[in-house]
Amino acid sequence: MNRQTILLISDMRQVYLAEIMTKRGLNVRCLDIRNSGTVKEQIEKLKSFLAEADMLILPIPVTKIPEQKMLNDILNKNLTNDTLVLGGCFSTEQQELLERRDIHYLDFMKDEIVTEENAVATAEGVIAELVNHSPYNIEEAKIIVTGYGCCGRAVAARLKALGARVTVLARRREVRKLAKKDGFYAADFAFGPEEAMGAAMLVNTVPAPVVTGAIIRELPRDAYILDIASKPGGTDFACARECGIRADLALGLPGKYAPKESAYILDRAVERFVRKEHEM
């Protein structure tokens, strides 16, 4: 690539990613959107920068950019067809925009390798959040993990290694069988209220309303709920507040707890994507 890579910085992942890509010889131009007072000015610069861009890398999730309508308008009017676009959790509107313009793009969060590698950093971030906010030790604590995808598996495994008594809640029978094979007690969400009794912590990984009022009302008042699913999460936060139970939606844990490792994960994904595009 002989032109520019435009990188929007929303957290330390992108700071490290810019360093890594620059060392690889790419011409990286950064737009820092972390300051709410200057974010519009930074996004406005995209209008002129995109004309010279081989690649545009947006945050994870893309919704970290506060001016979504402004961003979408600029992308629609200023993106050229040969600019590759990368980011995390594109909105439906953004996906349709890119596909309508025949612009090739990668959603980092739909890349299987990124998802698997990111799950490790996410799980370690979960441990840090639980230690920081729960009044209980993890060892010997009864902890519910909802969902058993990449993140659910990684979280459950690390909690088990720390001595927790982990219960996995999952809808699909085959997923529960896998969790049981891995050494966990697993149950359907229908048994969630029963399993919630005596649980010190609950970690949700499902981006759907699965941590319902029926489950929350059976939790002890000093339980801690950590929701790491994409916005708006899968927890009835209003019910948690009514019950006096702390419930946090914690997004971007890799960027918070392992930003440099996360940057290397993203850089490898960029290289794979660019290589694939060149082979087409």
Score class of each variant (00 low, 15 high):
residue 253 L to N: 00
residue 264 Y to R: 09
residue 261 E to N: 07
residue 91 S to W: 00
residue 258 A to D: 01
residue 209 P to S: 10
residue 258 A to V: 02
residue 26 L to N: 06
residue 256 K to G: 05
residue 78 N to Y: 14
residue 120 V to I: 14
residue 96 E to R: 14
residue 30 C to P: 01
residue 108 F to M: 13
residue 58 L to M: 11
residue 46 L to D: 10
residue 3 R to W: 07
residue 213 G to D: 04
residue 38 T to G: 13
residue 132 N to G: 08
residue 185 Y to T: 15
residue 174 E to D: 15
residue 202 L to Y: 00
residue 260 K to R: 15
residue 38 T to A: 12
residue 198 G to C: 13
residue 265 I to M: 10
residue 39 V to S: 09
residue 97 L to A: 06
residue 212 T to Q: 06
residue 89 C to V: 07
residue 23 K to H: 11
residue 265 I to L: 00
residue 73 D to M: 12
residue 266 L to P: 08
residue 147 G to D: 08
residue 279 E to I: 08
residue 35 N to L: 13
residue 47 K to C: 03
residue 248 D to P: 03
residue 202 L to N: 06
residue 67 E to K: 12
residue 234 G to A: 09
residue 41 E to G: 09
residue 107 D to I: 10
residue 128 A to Y: 01
residue 46 L to T: 12
residue 2 N to V: 12
residue 246 R to L: 09
residue 231 K to I: 05
residue 98 L to S: 12
residue 24 R to P: 00
residue 179 A to M: 08
residue 143 I to F: 00
residue 219 L to W: 01
residue 123 A to Q: 08
residue 4 Q to C: 08
residue 9 I to T: 13
residue 98 L to A: 14
residue 130 L to N: 03
residue 119 A to L: 03
residue 57 I to N: 08
residue 5 T to W: 15
residue 280 M to K: 15
residue 234 G to C: 12
residue 273 F to S: 03
residue 24 R to S: 14
residue 159 L to F: 01
residue 196 A to R: 07
residue 244 G to T: 02
residue 51 A to I: 08
residue 220 P to N: 06
residue 196 A to T: 06
residue 55 M to I: 13
residue 181 K to N: 13
residue 126 V to R: 04
residue 135 P to T: 06
residue 139 E to V: 10
residue 178 L to M: 14
residue 211 V to E: 01
residue 66 P to S: 15
residue 203 V to S: 09
residue 219 L to A: 04
residue 161 A to G: 12
residue 64 K to Q: 09
residue 196 A to L: 03
residue 71 L to K: 04
residue 257 Y to M: 04
residue 4 Q to N: 15
